[in-house]
Design a protein around this nucleic acid. Structure first.
Lengths: 343, 343
DNA sequence: GTTAGCACTCTATTAGTTCGAGTGCTAAGA
DNA sequence: TCTTAGCACTCGAACTAATAGAGTGCTAAC
C-alpha cells in the first residue's frame, strides 16, 4: 500500500519523466510544487517505491524512471483528466467543415490531424466494410472478354473488380444477370454476399442466362478476394521524432509491424469497449514492447464502427492523449451518426 | 583524359566501394583480378584520379571513395550490363501468373517485388488516369439528399464520389440526367471531362431536367477534386536497412519527401525517355542529395504510361538495378500492351 | 615508367582522470 | 517514530593520452 506522499511522489516523478525523458532525482523533486519534504526523505520514499516495483534506476547512482508497473499505476489511479484545448478542438472540427460526405475521407483526415496534434502515430480503423449493405450491383463490359463488377453500398462505398467473361458473351445475357443480381441481392451485407450469391441467384441464372457457368464463376471469384483495407495511418514518421527510439533496428521492426496489415488486429483490440491503454509488454507484439498504445472505439448510432489508436513511446503523454481520444471518439461518433441517421 | 589503367582502377574502386561501403586502399586494389601493378603505382594513379575529381578521401590518410563525378563517369562509361538472374525473372513474372487483370494491381505488386529484389525503395507511377476514357457514368442515390457518382473508364478503373442532391429530387430526373451524361460523355477522357460536362450537357440538362442547377453544381464539384493517386511504393522501410543512412534526422527528411505526393514529379521525371540515373545532388530535392535514383518508363502500345524508380544510396548497385529495370520496363510494357491490345 | 622503402597522418580503440549528479546510510533532531 | 543534515560512495559522461593500424605521399633506385 502506498501513502499519500508516495502517491504524490510517484505522480510527480512520472509526470516529470514524461516531460523531460531524463531520470528524475530526489533534488529535482524537492523543487516541485506540492512537495515539502527534504531530498533525504524523498530518497527514502523513492527507495520504497522502487522496492515495490513502481520505479527503476538506469544504473546504481541514477535518478528514477517509471517501471511498467509504475506507468500502469499512474494511468489507473493518478491520471487527472485535462480539458482538450480549444485550439485542438478547432483543428479537429475542421474535418467536418468542408462538408465531406465520405466516411473514409473523414477518417483519413482525422488520422492526419491526430498525428499532427500528438506527434505520435495514429491508426484509425474504419467501419467494417463487410457490414455494409448492397445498394446496387452492376457489370460494365470493357472489352471482349473483360468486364468490371461494381458494388455500391449504402454508405457510399464502391467496390470494383475486373473479371473475365466469355469473349462471345451476349450483352443481353449480362444485362439479365445484373437484373437478377440486383433483384436478389440488394439489402444483403457484403459479409453475406458470397453465400447468398450461390443460394439465391445460381438457380435463377441457370434458367435465364446462357453460359451462366463461366460468367458466374469468375464473377464470384472476383468478389472473393478481399480488398480495400479500411485502415488509415497518420504520422507514421513521427516515430522517428521520438528521442526514445534511437535504435534504427528497433524502429524498423516497429514500422514493419505497423505497416503490415495483418498485425492490425493485435494492435487494435477489435470489439473492446471504451478507452484502453496498453503499456510496453502488455502489447501483444514483441516489436512494440517499448511502445504504449491507447485505443478507443467510436460508433454510428448504437453500433460500434471502428477504433482509433495512438502509438507512442511508453513515456507517452497519457493525460493529453486520453482526453484527446475521449473527445475525438465522441465527436466522431456524433458526426458520423448525424451523417447517416437519415438512412 | 584517363588511361586504360586509370579506367580499370576507377572501375574496380567503385565496384569495391559499392560492395563493401568502406574506403578502398591501394593495397586492397593490388589483390583484385586484372590489376598487376604494385601498390605504389596504384597510389600514384589514385592520386591522379583524385586530382581529376573522380575520387575523394574521407580524411588525409584514408582510402578513396568515389566522388559524384566518379559515380557519374562509372555509370556513363564503365557499366557493363549484367543479365538478370533467372531467379529474379521468375519472381517478377509471378505478377502475371495469377491472371490479375487490373493494371493497378499489377503495378502495385511489381513495386513490392522490385523492392524485395533490390533491398531499395521502389516507386511506381501508374498510367495517368486523366488519359483514361469514360466508358460509363452512373449516379446511385443513397439516402434523401445524398448520392454517389461513379465513372468507369476503359481500363477498368472506377472513380466514385459522394455528393449531395436536393432532398426532394425526383428519381426520374436523376435517371434523365444519367442518360444525358452517358449519351454525351462516353468516349471523353477524364482530362476533358470537366470542360465537356459544361459545354455539352448543360444546355440539354436545362431542357429536360428540373432543378438541374443544384444537381449539376454539386455533381460537377464532386468530379473536380482529384483523387486516387496512382503512385505505388515498395519497401519504404528499406532505407532503414542501408548502412549509408545512419542519421535519423536525414532519414526522416528523406522519407517525408517520398511520402508526400507533391514531390513525386521532382523524383520521377515525367516524360523522360529511356533509363535515367540521377546521382546525389543531381536530384532536384535537397533531401535526396545522398541518394541515387534510377528511373525508367514503360508504355502500353506506343503511349508512355508510367515510370518506375528505384531510390537507394549513392553507393547503389547500379549495374544490377539498371539491368533489372531494363527488364522490368520492357516486360511490363509487353504484358500491359497484351492486356489492353484488344480494346 | 615502376616500385620498394619510409616518414607521416589520421582514425579508432583503449585506458585513465576528473566532474557532477545522485544514491544509501547514519546519526542527530523534532 | 518520522524527518533531515551530512557524508562517503557509485557510476556515467566528458575529456585526455597513448597505441596500433591502415593508408598516404614522396624519394630514390631500378
Amino acid at each position: 500500500m502506498l501513502t499519500e506522499r508516495q502517491l504524490l511522489i510517484l505522480k510527480v516523478t512520472v509526470d516529470d519523466y514524461i516531460q523531460s525523458a531524463q531520470p528524475v532525482g530526489s533534488n529535482q523533486l524537492t523543487k516541485k510544487p506540492g512537495i515539502t519534504s527534504s531530498s533525504a526523505t524523498i530518497r527514502n520514499e523513492l527507495a520504497e517505491l522502487e522496492g515495490q516495483g513502481y520505479l527503476e534506476k538506469t544504473h546504481t547512482s541514477s535518478g528514477r524512471i517509471p517501471s511498467q508497473k509504475g506507468y500502469r499505476y499512474y494511468v489507473d489511479h493518478l491520471l487527472t483528466p485535462n480539458p482538450v484545448p480549444q485550439q485542438d478542438i478547432v483543428q479537429l472540427r475542421s474535418v467536418f467543415e468542408e462538408k465531406v460526405n465520405e466516411t473514409e475521407e473523414i477518417i483519413k483526415r482525422s488520422a492526419g490531424i491526430l498525428s499532427e496534434l500528438t506527434n505520435y502515430t495514429s491508426i484509425l480503423l474504419g467501419p467494417d466494410i463487410r457490414k455494409h449493405i448492397v445498394k446496387k450491383l452492376s457489370i460494365v463490359p470493357l472489352s471482349p472478354g473483360v468486364a468490371v463488377a461494381i458494388i455500391v453500398t449504402d454508405s457510399g462505398h464502391v467496390e470494383n473488380r475486373v473479371f473475365s467473361i466469355p469473349t462471345d458473351m451476349d450483352p443481353s445475357d449480362i444485362e439479365k444477370m445484373v437484373n437478377i443480381l440486383n433483384e436478389r441481392l440488394i439489402g444483403v451485407s457484403l459479409h453475406d454476399l458470397h453465400n447468398r450469391l450461390e443460394q439465391e441467384t445460381l438457380a435463377l441464372l441457370r434458367q435465364h442466362v446462357e453460359r451462366y457457368g463461366e460468367l458466374f464463376r469468375t464473377f464470384q471469384q472476383a468478389l472473393l478476394l478481399p480488398r480495400s483495407d479500411n485502415v488509415y495511418y497518420g504520422g507514421k514518421l513521427n516515430i522517428l521524432r521520438q528521442p526514445d527510439f534511437h535504435d534504427i533496428q528497433k524502429i524498423r521492426e516497429l514500422m514493419d509491424v505497423m505497416e503490415e496489415g495483418k498485425h492490425i488486429p493485435e494492435i487494435l483490440p477489435i470489439g473492446a469497449q471504451g478507452l484502453q491503454i496498453r503499456i510496453g509488454s502488455e502489447n501483444a507484439l514483441a516489436a512494440m514492447e517499448d511502445c504504449s498504445v491507447i485505443t478507443v472505439s467510436y460508433d454510428i448510432g448504437d453500433e460500434q464502427m471502428g477504433s482509433i489508436a495512438i502509438v507512442g513511446p511508453k513515456r507517452m503523454d497519457y493525460r493529453r492523449i486520453v482526453s484527446l481520444l475521449d473527445y475525438v471518439s465522441s465527436d466522431l461518433s456524433k458526426e458520423l451518426t448525424r451523417l447517416f441517421q437519415g438512412k
